[in-house]
Design a protein around this nucleic acid. Sequence first.
DNA 1: GCGATCAGCT
DNA 2: CACAGCTGATCGC
Length: 415
Amino acid sequence: MESGLISVDRWTKGSQAYFLTHMHSDHTRGLSGVWSQGPLYCSRITASLFPSRFPNFDLSLLRVVPISSWTSLSLRSPSSGSAVSLHFMAIDAHHCPGSLMFLFRGDFGCFLYTGDFRWDADESDEAKNTLVAAINESPVDILYLDNTYCNPIYSFPSRQVAANLVADIITSHPSHDIIIAVDSLGKEDLLVHVSRILNIKIWVWPERLLTIHLLGFQDIFTTNTTCTRVRAVPRYSFSIQTLEGLNTMCPTIGIMPSGLPWMKRPFKRDDDKLFGSLLTATYETIPRAVHRFHDYMYTVHYSDHSCYEEIGEFIELVKPKSMKGIVVSSSCYVDPLYYFGRICGTSQPPQVLLMRPDPAEQLRAVRIKSYSASDKTLVLEKEKKRKRGDSHSSLMRIKKRARIQVKSAKISEVD
DNA sequence: GCGATCAGCT
DNA sequence: CACAGCTGATCGC
């Protein structure tokens, strides 16, 4: 597809329409309160998070998209100036609140960009039915796939099953305080489930409560530590050390919901020089859905990304002519064609199992996100790449204030 | 002081 | 390793 038309989760200059799959910061890098490159298409929930995430953002740029129905856009070819017609459909990605996949259709063909997604949908799920119907109309030429867990080692249960496991851990510790690690957006359904099963409120830090209220949750969450023993805390403040500290005050266990298999660090020998040698290190992978990682810490395989099996089912459903992974940051990046290329037909090139892309290669791969096909453009865009902005600075003062509030809340709960 | 970027950490 | 972040240092304005 010609460059200069649309970008998905990329915010550099040069596109006529910008698409945001969801409000996680690795997808909004480059967005800021002063960004104004063009119209930005996203879900209603994502749009509602803009004022708090990006103060001063020009909200008139936002275009809330309908779910599961087609929208037409009229763009201009940057090279010829002629009109280009493009249709897109947003589909629920079930990754975090407001997350979407985008299906694009035009003279260039048909692309499906999944963003991050979890395919633990059942047969009656609207996303699945929408996708099946749309693909029957016209097949997908290129699937841009969330390949985070595109490896058979990544096997874990549905979120519903995992949520029950979390509830089981809590009920089996009736007089413990519980802390659950979460990020700034996502896993609300897990917390709601725990709340319903245990008939208990969930403490969250004040800034998180603001987000939760914007998402439309009511009553279940509180910032008052005295009315619950279950607290959701930022993942970055969640560690064995934190738990050991809390246990000097009150018996407390931590629960880490994550799709990553919990790996222990390489065994440290007396000879420290051996540390870091991946060839000689011994790793222990934990395949169980629940693991008592430490006296005070459990890990549960609760994931907002699809497991290997679900990725396979998804590709089988979409049957794309070709596909590309959109996650390139991992050093164990797996080309989805390696495991699932057969679904795409026989004309695929030989595949790479594991590759560690060098930085230049990563840069190239990231360009996939803006559908830049021309090599000339790649070179130009490479230079522009330095101009990336970041949003977190514009929020720093506000966040600093919020942090102080979180800290005082922590202090008061310890005292 | 402010915003942007990067190294370091989990 | 690193799901999706946060923190602190540094640099230019």
